[in-house]
Amino acid sequence: TQVHVDGVTYTFSNPEEAKKFADEMAKRKGGTWEIKDGHIHVE
């Protein structure tokens, strides 16, 4: 599962880990995350 944050791609083999990471990054940025085309995007 790929997580895209500010133009950087992080790859996780476990989708649950990817979601936890996205959640943390979104909180830090004061933003949100969503799943697009099977990838997670942090806004």
Rank of each mutant, 00 (worst) to 15 (best):
T1L: 10
T1N: 06
T1S: 06
T1P: 05
T1Y: 11
Q2K: 13
Q2G: 04
Q2Y: 14
Q2D: 09
Q2A: 08
Q2F: 13
Q2M: 13
Q2N: 11
Q2H: 13
V3L: 02
V3H: 00
V3F: 02
V3P: 00
V3G: 00
V3E: 00
V3I: 03
V3T: 01
V3S: 00
H4E: 05
H4P: 00
H4K: 05
H4G: 01
H4W: 12
H4F: 11
H4V: 08
H4Q: 05
V5N: 04
V5K: 01
V5M: 11
V5P: 00
V5F: 08
D6Y: 07
D6S: 07
D6W: 05
D6N: 07
G7A: 05
G7H: 07
G7R: 06
G7L: 05
G7S: 07
G7T: 05
V8Q: 12
V8S: 08
V8H: 11
V8T: 10
V8L: 12
T9R: 08
T9I: 15
T9E: 06
T9S: 08
T9Y: 11
Y10Q: 01
Y10S: 02
Y10R: 03
Y10P: 00
Y10D: 00
Y10H: 06
Y10C: 11
Y10L: 04
Y10I: 05
Y10K: 03
Y10W: 09
Y10F: 10
T11Y: 14
T11M: 11
T11G: 06
T11H: 11
T11S: 11
T11D: 06
T11A: 08
T11L: 12
F12W: 03
F12I: 01
F12T: 00
F12D: 00
F12S: 00
S13T: 11
S13M: 11
S13H: 09
S13C: 14
S13I: 10
S13A: 12
S13E: 11
S13L: 11
N14T: 11
N14A: 08
N14W: 07
N14P: 00
N14D: 14
N14M: 08
N14H: 09
P15W: 15
P15T: 12
P15R: 09
P15G: 08
P15S: 11
E16S: 09
E16P: 04
E16T: 10
E17K: 08
E17A: 11
E17Y: 07
E17D: 13
A18H: 00
K19R: 13
K19G: 06
K19V: 14
K19A: 11
K19W: 12
K19F: 15
K20R: 12
K20N: 11
K20C: 15
K20W: 08
K20S: 11
K20V: 11
K20G: 08
F21C: 11
F21G: 00
F21M: 02
F21L: 01
F21S: 00
F21Y: 06
F21E: 00
F21V: 02
F21H: 01
A22Y: 02
A22V: 02
A22N: 01
A22M: 02
A22R: 01
A22T: 01
A22I: 01
A22E: 01
A22F: 02
D23M: 12
D23R: 10
D23E: 13
D23N: 10
D23V: 12
D23H: 08
E24S: 06
M25T: 09
M25H: 06
M25Q: 11
M25G: 01
M25L: 08
M25D: 02
A26D: 02
A26K: 03
A26Y: 03
A26C: 13
A26W: 03
K27H: 12
K27G: 09
K27L: 13
K27S: 10
K27W: 12
K27E: 13
K27V: 11
K27N: 12
R28H: 13
R28Q: 15
R28E: 14
R28K: 14
R28T: 14
K29M: 15
K29I: 15
K29F: 15
K29P: 06
K29W: 15
G30R: 05
G30I: 02
G31S: 05
G31A: 05
G31C: 09
G31T: 08
G31H: 03
G31P: 02
T32R: 13
T32F: 14
T32L: 07
T32N: 09
T32G: 07
T32H: 13
T32K: 12
T32M: 09
W33Y: 06
W33R: 02
W33D: 03
W33S: 04
W33N: 03
W33H: 03
W33G: 03
W33T: 06
W33F: 05
W33M: 06
E34Q: 12
E34W: 15
E34V: 15
E34A: 09
E34S: 09
E34H: 14
E34R: 11
E34F: 15
I35N: 05
I35M: 13
I35E: 12
I35L: 12
I35R: 03
I35Y: 13
I35W: 15
I35C: 15
K36S: 07
K36M: 09
K36T: 07
K36R: 13
K36C: 14
D37I: 02
D37C: 14
D37W: 05
D37V: 03
D37A: 06
D37T: 02
D37E: 08
G38N: 07
G38P: 02
G38K: 03
G38T: 04
G38H: 04
H39L: 09
H39M: 13
H39D: 09
H39E: 11
H39R: 05
I40R: 00
I40G: 01
I40Y: 13
I40P: 02
I40W: 04
I40M: 04
I40K: 01
I40L: 06
I40Q: 02
H41Q: 07
H41R: 07
H41E: 06
H41P: 02
H41N: 07
H41A: 05
H41L: 10
H41G: 03
H41D: 05
V42E: 02
V42R: 02
V42N: 02
V42K: 02
V42M: 06
V42S: 02
E43G: 12
E43M: 15
E43L: 15
E43Y: 15
E43R: 14
E43V: 15
